[in-house]
Design a binder for these strands. Structure first.
Lengths: 121, 121
DNA sequence: CCTGAAAATGAAAATCATTTTCATTTCTGA
DNA sequence: TCAGAAATGAAAATGATTTTCATTTTCAGG
C-alpha cells in the first residue's frame, strides 16, 4: 500500500459511493493533490486486486469504483441509472458448490450479477 | 426493420447467447455476408432501442448482446483448459426473481458463471 | 419505367477510457 | 551513502464505439 493508493482510498471515502477513475482524478486535482491519471488507474487496479475496492461498469461501459463492503456479496444493478444494491447470495454459494460437486470441479469460484430497472427509474 | 437488422438477428439466433459487436461482425464476415462494422453497430443500437436485443457489459467493458427472451444457460468453465459444461440454473432464476422482488426491480436478467478446475486437469 | 428525396451503407477519421512505454524520480535496506 | 527496486507521469498506443460524409439503394408518385 503506497502513497497513491492511500490518496485514492481517501477520495473514495470522501465520495462515499461509486466514482469513475476520471472523476477520482479530477477530485484529486481539485483538492490540490499532485497525482497523475496513470497513477490513479494503477492504484485502482491494485486496490481492486487486493479486494479493497469494488469495480463494476456503468451502462456506457466506463468502470466505476467504490470501497468494498466487508462481506462477499453480489450486486443488483440498475440498467438505467447504474445504482446498485448489495444482495445476499447464499443461494448462489450453494448452487456453486452443488454444480462443482456434480461435475467433479475443484477450486471453484463464481460471478453472479442481477441487472434490471430500479424502482426510482 | 431493414436488411442489416435481419442479418444481425439471424447471427444472434445462430449464436444462441451473448456476443459482442466485433464477434458478430466476424461471424457475419465468415459466413460470407457483406456488411460493414459500422452497420453492425447501428443495427444493434436500433435493435436494443426496439427492445429486440438485450445489451449488457462484459467485465472488461465491452458491450455484449443477445436476443431478448433467449432462454439462456450457465457455464462451468475450467480455468486451466477452458473446457465448459452447460449446467442447470433454476436456482439462479429463483434467486434473481426473489431479489428483484425484494428490491422492487423490474425487467431483470442476470449473469452467472462458475469457474474452477475440471476433473481432467 | 423515370426521378428525386429519404434512408441505408461503409470507409475513414474522431472520440474516449484505459493501458503501455519509457525516461525520470523516489524509496529502501544493507 | 549507494545501488537496485519501486513508483511516477507524460506521451504514445490501444481498442471499442461513434461520427462524418460521400456514395448507393430504396421506393413512392408521376
Amino acid at each position: 500500500m503506497n502513497k497513491s493508493e492511500i490518496k485514492v482510498i481517501a477520495v473514495l471515502e470522501r465520495v462515499g459511493g461509486f466514482a469513475s477513475a476520471q472523476e477520482l482524478y479530477q477530485l484529486l486535482q481539485r483538492s490540490g493533490e499532485s497525482i497523475g491519471l496513470t497513477t490513479v488507474y494503477r492504484a485502482l487496479q491494485s486496490l481492486v486486486s487486493d479486494k479493497i475496492v469494488d469495480q463494476l461498469r456503468r451502462e456506457d461501459g466506463e468502470a466505476i469504483y467504490r470501497l468494498c463492503g466487508d462481506s462477499h456479496h453480489h450486486h443488483l444493478v440498475c440498467k438505467q441509472c447504474g445504482s446498485t444494491v448489495e444482495i445476499e447470495g447464499s443461494a448462489i454459494e450453494r448452487w456453486t458448490k452443488a454444480m462443482a460437486e456434480e461435475h467433479g470441479f475443484r477450486e471453484v469460484g463464481h460471478t453472479a450479477e442481477i441487472f434490471g430497472i430500479c424502482p426510482a427509474c
